[in-house]
């Protein structure tokens, strides 16, 4: 199960890399989702360390909460991306407003 947790760390890092590296907003949204999955994997994998067959279920409930939060955030982000694209023609953040 440590292996699963390590993959969780890997997913978090890969997601963070893509979030920073790519300009397209859809890819940034995907990256945030992958990062979230990585965190959920760490939460659940380490919940198996009870020493018994039954895992600790509190992290399971936390992850279900997290999945629902993630889909809410994704929906809001996608709508915002589309509105922005309709306004500017691009699903990217322009550089001009940054200083």
């Amino acid at each position: 199960m440590y292996f699963y947790a390590l993959i969780g760390v890997g997913l978090f890092s890969v997601g963070l890399y893509a979030l920073i590296n790519y300009a397209h907003l859809l890819r940034k949204i995907l990256a945030l989702n992958v990062m979230g999955s990585g965190i959920f994997l760490i939460l659940i994998a380490l919940a198996k360390r009870t020493g018994e067959t039954q895992p600790d279920v509190v992290p399971h409930a936390m992850v279900i909460t997290g999945i629902v939060v993630a889909v809410s955030a994704t929906a809001l982000a996608l709508t915002l991306m589309l509105k922005l694209a309709a306004e500017t023609g691009r699903a990217e953040l322009s550089e001009k407003d940054r200083d």
Binding site: L76, A77, M81, L93
Partner: peptide, 17 residues
């Protein structure tokens, strides 16, 4: 509007991260 939407999007990404 363009500016408010850009600001909100940047804000959303930062706050989610």
């Amino acid at each position: 509007g363009k500016n408010a939407l850009t600001g909100a999007m940047r804000y959303l990404l930062a706050t989610l991260l």
